[in-house]
């Protein structure tokens, strides 16, 4: 590893002051599960490393009137153990539970998963399906709030400025009756990274028609996004088996449009279609 200086800030203000001065030459470290391998390979060569897990206001999960706030250094284990999250966002908790093995879940954080912006991330696409928003803070500009969907610019690149810290993740409460599911596909090997995943959110109205649908496949696109063409196909309609079958084809087409034709020749298309149909069926039984 190239030499760097390590700074352990005592407060949010201390951390923001540090970045205001040295942000361009610094890297934030939370759980370090992405950063430390990068430092070891010297893919990243910061002069300073700013340690944020000890900053208490960055931890925990809070319920507000219309939303939830998740601290950026909340670990996957803490997300999985949170009754509050499990009750309100089961699919998000399933995505956190799918990460790595226990040692990685004990260290890896929700903020690190977003800020690293890996195309293979699991929790990032689930958050996207939930319409997550990010709270960013800097000394110069104070707080700003942006939708997660606008924060990831390209693989491993976010719109965060070098003096900014991701200080919170905001999730609006889902409307009553919203059902959700997350699944990671392919080989059932705990440590296998870059396995395709799928998050679905579904709500029906009193006529049993789809009134809300969000579909986000993960670990397949350079930058995860909602499959709005497929979503629109089902909106306002009764989710009959034939329509779901047709929607699964549209979903596959939409994926190929984003990822390029080569993707379709792989095993992934039939897998994605089947998992989509199965998850829809499961959500409709509930």
């Amino acid at each position: 590893m190239q030499r760097f200086q390590f700074y352990n800030p005592r407060s949010v203000e201390d951390a923001l002051n540090f970045l205001a001065e040295k942000g361009e030459r610094s890297k934030i470290i939370a759980g370090g599960t992405d950063l430390i391998p990068g430092l070891r390979l010297e893919e990243i060569r910061p002069d300073f490393v700013l340690n944020i897990p000890e900053i208490n206001p960055f931890r925990g999960i809070k319920e507000m009137d219309h939303s939830f706030w998740i601290g950026p250094t909340t670990t996957f284990t803490e997300m999985v153990e949170s009754n509050l999250l499990s009750r309100s966002f089961p699919a998000l908790v399933q995505s956190a539970a799918s990460v790595g093995g226990p040692q990685i879940r004990n260290r890896g954080t929700i903020g690190g998963n977003i800020a690293n912006a890996s195309p293979a991330a699991d929790v990032l696409p689930a958050l996207l399906a939930h319409g997550g928003e990010l709270e960013l803070q800097s000394k110069r500009n104070g707080k700003r709030i942006i939708p997660l969907a606008e924060a990831i610019l390209s693989p491993y690149k976010t719109c965060f400025r070098s003096d900014e810290i991701l200080t919170g993740i905001i999730l609006k409460k889902l409307e009553l009756g919203t059902r959700s599911a997350f699944e990671k596909l392919g080989r059932r090997k705990a440590m296998a990274r870059a396995r395709m995943n799928l998050t679905l959110l579904l709500r029906l109205n009193h006529r049993e028609e789809v009134s809300e649908l969000r579909i986000v496949p993960g670990a397949v696109m350079p930058v995860a996004k909602r499959m709005d063409r497929t979503e629109r196909m089902l909106l306002g309609k009764k989710p009959e088996p034939l329509l779901i079958e047709a929607a699964s084809k549209t979903l596959a087409e939409e994926m190929v449009e984003v990822t390029g034709a080569r993707w379709s020749t792989e095993y992934k298309i039939p897998v994605l279609k089947n998992i989509f149909k199965r998850m829809m069926k499961q959500l409709l039984i509930v």
């Binding site: 352990n8 599960t33 990685i104 004990n106 260290r107």
Partner: peptide, 29 residues
């Protein structure tokens, strides 16, 4: 492996298992 894959470096930190190869020493203050 020194990249979090094998777990032979597992220790318990404040009650939870971690890969010691993926924690900077100064993070354990």
């Amino acid at each position: 492996c020194e990249q979090g894959d094998c777990g032979v470096c597992t220790v318990i930190m404040d009650g939870r298992t971690v890969n010691a190869c993926l924690v900077l020493a100064l993070q354990t203050e």
